[in-house]
Measured scan of single mutants.
Amino acid sequence: MTFKAIINGKTLKGETTTEAVDAATAEKVFKQYFNDNGLDGEWTYDDATKTFTVTE
């Protein structure tokens, strides 16, 4: 399945996608990506659209 992340950061904005077997796996991938890029913020997840949003 394809999962999307919308990034609303102070220094980084945009979208990225990942292929994962479930939402928990996708969340781990996205959180690692955000940690690697120095992002920290509020997380939400919309199961209907398979979209994570992080707002810094």
Rank of each mutant, 00 (worst) to 15 (best):
L12K: 07
A20E: 03
E27L: 15
K28M: 10
K31W: 04
T17S: 10
E27A: 09
A5C: 15
T2C: 14
K4V: 09
Y45W: 02
A20P: 01
K4T: 14
W43L: 06
F3E: 03
F52Q: 00
G41A: 10
K10W: 13
K13W: 13
T44Q: 08
T51S: 04
F30V: 02
E42M: 10
E27D: 01
T44N: 08
F34Q: 02
T51E: 02
L12S: 11
I7A: 09
A24R: 08
I7D: 02
T55P: 02
M1G: 07
D36A: 12
M1L: 13
G38R: 07
K28V: 07
V54G: 02
N35V: 11
T25E: 12
E15T: 11
A26M: 02
A26K: 00
A23G: 03
G14C: 15
F52L: 00
G14P: 06
W43A: 01
T17W: 14
A23P: 07
D22N: 07
V29K: 10
N37C: 15
N35T: 13
K4F: 10
T55M: 08
E42V: 13
A48R: 09
T18P: 01
T11I: 11
A26Y: 00
E27T: 03
K13Q: 11
E56C: 12
K31A: 06
I6Q: 05
T49C: 04
E42C: 10
A20N: 03
I7K: 00
L39H: 04
V54A: 03
T11E: 11
E42G: 06
T53A: 03
A20M: 02
L39V: 13
D47Y: 06
T25S: 12
V21L: 13
V54L: 13
A20H: 02
Q32I: 08
D46L: 03
E27M: 14
G41F: 15
Q32G: 05
T51A: 02
M1F: 14
G41D: 02
D46P: 00
E56V: 15
T55V: 10
Y45E: 00
Q32W: 05
A48P: 06
K50Y: 07
D22I: 01
I6H: 05
T17I: 09
V29A: 09
N37F: 15
D22V: 01
E42N: 09
N37Q: 14
T17K: 07
K31P: 00
G41Y: 15
E15D: 05
D47E: 14
A23R: 12
E15W: 14
T25D: 07
N37Y: 15
I7L: 11
D22M: 00
T11R: 06
K13S: 11
A48T: 10
G14T: 13
L39E: 03
T44Y: 10
N8M: 11
G9F: 15
G38D: 08
A26N: 00
E27Y: 15
D40F: 14
E15Q: 10
F3C: 05
F3Y: 11
F30S: 00
A5S: 02
T55R: 04
D22Q: 01
K28Y: 07
D40E: 12
Y45K: 01
I7F: 15
T53E: 05
E15M: 11
K31L: 07
V29E: 07
G9P: 03
K31G: 02
K31M: 08
D36G: 07
A23T: 04
W43M: 09
D47H: 08
T53M: 11
E42Q: 10
M1R: 08
A26R: 00
Y33P: 01
K50T: 02
Y33M: 10
D47N: 06
V21H: 10
K13D: 06
D36R: 09
F30K: 00
N35S: 13
M1D: 09
G14D: 06
E19R: 13
F34E: 00
A23F: 10
D36F: 09
A20I: 01
F52M: 01
K50F: 11
K4N: 05
T44K: 08
V54E: 02
D46Q: 03
K31Y: 04
T53H: 11
D40A: 12
D46V: 03
D46W: 02
A48W: 06
G41I: 08
A24T: 08
T25F: 05
K28T: 08
N35M: 14
Y45P: 00
F30W: 02
K50E: 01
E15A: 08
K4E: 03
F52N: 00
T2Q: 11
K31Q: 08
N8G: 04
A26P: 00
N37L: 15
W43F: 07
A5W: 08
I7H: 14
V54Q: 03
K31I: 07
Y33Q: 06
A26E: 01
G38W: 08
T16V: 15
T17Q: 08
M1A: 08
Q32A: 11
A23Q: 08
F3G: 02
